[in-house]
């Protein structure tokens, strides 16, 4: 197991390197001069030259490339051209909000996906199964922002049950902060009113994201569980008197998990980036909103930093998924 994990980590180093390289060269090839974007098109040439020198843009491209790799290896994602703050620091401030939203959306999606999908597979051809198939096609076609707006309209505007935007009400942030995740911090601090407020703010955005993503999970889980349920070891388990619930979850679902986990891991990573629409719809102060505002401001370093950040995060998640898979499935780890 240890060798497997180490190998897997070793393998992702070239992967991350390739992503870094692509991000670097794509941003060089794209039209638009970051210096002009910063200083405006009418900046005098001498100022532009000085700025280019300061940013290292006058060096040969290969030198720039290796400087860039070295900086990232040192955790230096450059300075925002808008605020002058280190990009990594800005990202780390926004990241917990996104992570919190993503985790809750994943909980919603995984919960719906696993139970609805498994039961649909178990009752193949029943009304429940048909409803699962309709659900997944129907919900998958929802545009995220539209679905978010609908939930806001129903639960926020008409029913007044839940807040429609932001991560918390004014003066309702956990203090002191530990992880940056409001829910976790509120629990650590024992601030139950803050916890309630944070959860209320989380419900609509995480339901929006979670339900839309769950459509894929329901389909994936259903298809894979149908497949494992038809295998002989299922009949053999029943022939030994194993309870139906155990047959379904321990034997069928667990064997169906590897492909499902892989997709879930990828979705989790995609959610971090794909939460952009949800974050904007719900004014959620996460990385998605950050990225959108920096694209508007043509903040090249921040954009580059955010992409690299996502890329590394995706790589980490996929390592985690593989490790979990190996843990579940002995054939992978041997």
């Amino acid at each position: 197991m240890k060798t497997y994990i180490l190998t897997r980590i070793g393998l992702s180093i070239p992967m991350i390197l390739i992503i870094l390289t692509i991000v670097f060269f794509v941003l060089r090839v794209l039209p638009g001069n970051p210096v002009l974007a910063m200083l405006g098109p009418k900046a005098p040439p001498s100022v532009v030259k000085a700025m280019e020198h300061q940013m290292g843009l006058d060096k040969p491209i290969l030198v720039q490339y290796f400087d860039y790799l070295k900086d990232i290896a040192h955790g230096n994602f450059g300075q925002s051209t808008v605020t002058g703050m280190p990009v990594l620091k800005e990202l780390m401030q926004k990241f917990p909000a996104t992570l919190e939203l993503t985790i809750f959306a994943m909980i919603v999606a995984v919960f719906i996906g696993i139970f609805y999908g498994t039961l649909a597979a178990y009752k193949l051809g029943s009304p429940l199964d048909v409803s699962a198939r309709i659900y997944s096609i129907f919900v998958y076609s929802f545009p995220v922002f539209w679905f978010g707006l609908m939930l806001q309209l129903i639960f926020g505007v008409w029913l007044h049950w839940l807040p429609v935007s932001g991560e918390s009400s004014p003066f309702m942030t956990p203090d002191p902060t530990h992880t940056g995740l409001y829910v976790v911090d509120a629990i650590i601090n024992g601030q139950w009113d803050v916890l309630k407020d944070s959860l209320e703010h989380l419900i609509l955005p995480s339901l929006t994201l979670g339900i839309v993503i769950s459509s894929i999970f329901v389909r994936m889980v259903r298809a894979n569980v149908v497949l494992t349920l038809s295998q002989q070891f299922i009949t053999a388990a029943r022939a030994r008197g194993v309870k139906e619930k155990t047959v379904l979850f321990r034997h069928a679902l667990k064997n169906a998990l590897p492909p499902i986990l892989t997709i879930m891991g990828l979705q989790f990573a995609l959610l971090l980036g794909g939460a952009v629409l949800t974050e904007v719809t719900f004014s959620w102060p996460g990385i998605g909103s950050y990225l959108v505002s920096r694209i508007h401001a043509r903040d090249f370093t921040a954009i580059q930093g955010t992409i690299v950040f996502f890329a590394i995060f995706v790589a980490i998640i996929s390592i985690l998924v593989d490790v979990i898979n190996a843990w579940i499935n002995p054939r992978v780890r041997y």
């Binding site: 295998q231 002989q232 070891f233 009949t235 053999a236 388990a237 022939a239 030994r240 034997h251 667990k254 064997n255 579940i328 499935n329 002995p330 054939r331």
Partner: peptide, 15 residues
């Protein structure tokens, strides 16, 4: 009553 099956390759839970 117990039962054994035709294909031993698939009658045990692989994981």
């Amino acid at each position: 009553i117990a039962m054994i099956f035709q294909d031993p390759m698939t009658s045990l839970n692989p994981i």
